[in-house]
Design a protein around this nucleic acid. Structure first.
Lengths: 330, 330
DNA sequence: TCTAATTTGTGCGTATGTATG
DNA sequence: GCATACATACGCACAAATTAG
């Protein structure tokens, strides 16, 4: 039950405490259970009796165990307000993370520490951050985004401590996750808006393969093929004029701004000469340019569910669905 | 393992660092391995204990080794390419940080590691994060926001390794900083817009003392007094109808959205019956509701200047000024 | 529970060489 | 030539943590 790594940097008595906390968290130890005696722990782990004692004393002072002279140590409470530490690895810093992170934090206890890291779509950075912080956190929430070789790095972590967020990949299918099914949900929501889309003669996706998920591209092509709609994928709005009678799908907000400015410059009228579907709902889209149609997942729900999954030790694979909010831009 | 050439020009402590880096590169030292103690290195290499210590301290702040009192030094990371580690302590996760952070990262070298933390306007958290990470970074960039008792915590860090960001306080005046002068710049920019403000009979500030800086409130009152304008400070827009012929200053974007919706609901017309000045420029404000007048600092410039100050080891106190962008909402 | 050994952390003082103005 | 600042190096003393016996 108690594992001590002699070579490791963390003090032995702290390793003992962590072992017992983890045993309680995992259910191996329950309220009322007797702990092994000081001497037996000393013998089986090659420790000094005092080292075990200091560990037990700290647990006693925290009210987690009690000692009865002549009998032994017993678990008093399984309610560990252990300062749970969570490792949260995002792709990049952008405003969509705001709702997700804040909902996540809000749902967690105050004794929980969440540290944020960013891999900036760099595989080396992703692996390095994980291996550097391996063992220092209770849970690892990872956003692999569209990185390819994340499996080896993630594999070094304990399977039940890992949660995959936002985008997942086939080789990560054995981990708990809350993810978006970009392919399925894009098709679903475009189909919902089909009658409006048919007002236009062409549908154009603005796609950056570095930032956007592949599923979005696949879903786009499938939707167009099924419904026999003329389509195009472009990578930038710069140095181009807009196609009249086309509907644009714009996943990124900087291009959204460019697009709306172009609409004005070229004296086009949204929902008449040109249509717009934006990705990811943010505060002001409700009122920008008369209201922008968005396809978006609920990032708050995502953060909240993630927190609950961790707190309740559930291991699920949840699809966080996309919703279509039809506004005047379509 | 550690070889020091007495005659050589390179400082001894740098030779120690190089020895350890080489040992990591060659695989002699691996992650988790314990290093020889300060005293033993002193003895076997005829050095001062202090010389070994300075070498180890540099490796520690680069994140390559860690120290544990009473035990020893241990290898943390085998990535010896990181030469600079920066501790970045924000108040909360919100979209204004995006530009700041991205400009900061972009200006820095690739071998620089920046770790982000959040104190969530909690003084204990602020102090705890600093004391936990003391000694583990080369530089500490701190956003004390409107927290009161930050001085003691910050004081534990080496004076020349600290940079204060965004808001500063009189007791932090001996630290390098890039800050906004909310009082001065609010007065300045409101004065610039005075002729437009005078169209209205009253000026109303929406103020949340937990989130907004005190200087904003002081500047507001001074401006109103100087120009003899009827004024009011409110804390929420909920359950209230808007004052006609008033101009609202709204620092927070959630209330901005509420406000614009109310304007529509109550059939008011921006820049006629009611005016609006928003704080902090974000992407879409240029086009929301015909364009929103904003007072904003340049967060990108702030991030860029911060990076340059750190890279060039300059110690300055820079006021990052506010700009007024007049648009149709006023 | 007490003592002891080992190790890091920190503060203070001193000295030397080098670069700067 | 002189004054000053800075980096480097050394020595000593005491505090605090870890672990062992």
């Amino acid at each position: 039950m108690i594992h001590i790594k002699k070579e490791k940097g963390t003090p032995k008595y702290k390793q003992i405490i962590a072992s017992i906390e983890n045993a309680i968290l995992s259910g191996t130890l329950k309220k009322g259970d007797q702990l092994p005696s000081l001497n037996s722990i000393r013998d089986t782990n090659e420790l000094s009796r005092d080292t075990v004692l200091t560990a037990f004393n700290e647990l006693k002072s925290r009210g987690i165990i009690e000692s009865i002279v002549g009998k032994g140590y017993y678990i008093l409470s399984d309610d560990i307000h252990v300062h749970l530490k969570i490792f949260l690895l995002f792709d990049e810093f952008n405003s969509f993370k705001e709702d997700l992170y804040n909902a996540f934090i809000h749902e967690l206890d105050k004794n929980v520490r969440v540290d944020i890291y960013f891999h900036h779509f760099n595989e080396d950075m992703f692996s390095k951050l994980i291996s550097e912080n391996k063992g220092s956190y209770n849970y690892y929430v990872l956003m692999p985004a569209n990185l390819k070789n994340t499996h080896n790095a993630i594999n070094e972590l304990p399977n039940d401590k890992v949660y995959i967020l936002d985008q997942t990949h086939p080789e990560l299918s054995n981990y708990s996750s809350i993810y978006q099914n970009f392919e399925k949900d894009l098709i679903l929501n475009l189909t919902k808006a089909l009658s409006l889309i048919k007002k236009y003669s062409k549908i154009i996706l603005l796609f950056d393969e570095k930032k956007q998920p592949e599923g979005m591209l696949i879903g786009f092509h499938k939707f167009c093929k099924t419904n026999k709609i003329e389509n195009e994928v472009i990578h930038s709005l710069k140095n181009s004029i807009l196609d009249k009678n086309s509907v644009y799908i714009i996943p990124d907000d900087k291009n959204l701004l460019r697009f709306i400015k172009k609409v004005k410059e070229e004296s086009l009228i949204l929902s008449k000469n040109v249509g717009l579907i934006s990705y990811n709902e943010t505060l002001l889209k409700e009122i920008v340019a008369g209201g922008i149609t968005t396809i978006s997942t609920d990032f708050s729900a995502m953060g909240k569910q993630l927190a609950q999954m961790i707190l309740n030790k559930k291991h699920l694979k949840i699809e966080n669905t996309h919703n279509l909010i039809i506004r005047n831009s379509l």
